[in-house]
């Protein structure tokens, strides 16, 4: 690749070709010149140069990440304030729901503190069968339900009555206050910038399109402090948090499940 030439040869070449002798450095005259280094000895200095370059690039990266950290620190302050605000709001709503919490106090005391993974069937009280509701509504009607066209008045009437019944479906009170982990699909309700802050968790995709929609004990209203960037409506998520069961005032039926989410992650 390269063979170093001694200074004398180079000097001679310059003189032979008649070039500018001043192009040759004075230090070339002496063999012990520090300017001439054999490749083997320069590796030590190679390391020094490389170390300097590395230091420069590390300094740049550190500056960049310091700026990133500053940016995210201000974001962290913002979310810390949000946490404080929502804690106060949660305290307020707890006072309002004091009645239902007293009735659930017994089950609360025995409920485990660690996070429990649950499935959607657990949200329906055992023995509650939505189809049984339909049978009860039909009473002694002997007509075959499958033979009725969807738009016939009887079918519509039965369907509307069925919808009324499942719209305030019973909830499992023992779940109140438990920390659970539940997978599901997201129906966004409110956005924080480009991320969602409130949503409904449903067991199947397209719950707002399908007929009938899920009964009210198969829908969870999730509120979160740290908003979640949803990539698409098709993406299921794991939601972890404390689940609550509230009832409507004036005994109008169960309002369904609410979940204060602490962790939301992709499925």
């Amino acid at each position: 690749m390269f063979s170093p030439r001694g200074p004398s040869q180079r000097q001679c070449r310059h003189l032979r070709e008649g070039g500018n002798p001043q192009a040759v450095s004075r230090t070339d005259q002496t063999p012990e010149s520090s300017a001439i280094r054999s490749p083997k000895r320069s590796w030590r200095e190679t390391a020094a140069v490389a170390a300097r370059l590395l230091a420069l690039s590390i300094a740049l990266v550190a500056a960049g990440s310091a700026l990133v950290a500053a940016g995210s620190a201000s974001g962290a302050t913002g979310s810390a304030l949000a946490v404080t605000g929502s804690t106060l709001a949660a305290a307020g709503s707890r006072m309002a729901a004091a009645g239902s919490r007293m009735t659930a106090a017994g089950s609360r005391m025995t409920a485990p503190d660690e996070v429990r993974e649950i499935v959607w069937e657990e949200l329906m009280p055992p023995g509650w069968n939505p189809l049984a509701v339909l049978d009860a509504l039909r009473g002694n009607d002997p007509s075959d339900l499958d033979a009725l066209p969807d738009s016939s008045p009887r079918a519509i009437e039965l369907f509307n009555a069925y919808q009324e019944a499942v719209r305030s479906a019973p909830v499992v009170r023992e779940l109140n206050g438990q920390k659970v982990r539940l997978p599901g699909f997201v129906v966004p309700l409110d956005f924080e910038g480009v991320e969602i802050s409130e949503f409904l968790l449903v067991p199947y995709f397209g719950a707002c399109i399908h007929v009938p929609p899920p009964p009210s004990n198969q829908i969870v209203y999730v509120k979160t402090v740290a908003s979640y960037p949803l990539q698409g409506l098709f993406d299921p998520v794991w939601v972890t948090g404390e689940i609550r069961t509230d009832a409507y005032p004036n005994g109008l039926g169960d309002a369904g499940y609410t979940l204060q989410a602490t962790i939301i992650e992709p499925y």
Partner: peptide, 18 residues
């Protein structure tokens, strides 16, 4: 609405309003 959970039910009812 008075409850977020009721959204689907009311939405379905309006979409099927005869």
């Amino acid at each position: 609405l008075d409850s977020k959970i009721a959204i689907f039910g009311v939405q379905r009812r309006i979409n099927e309003y005869r």
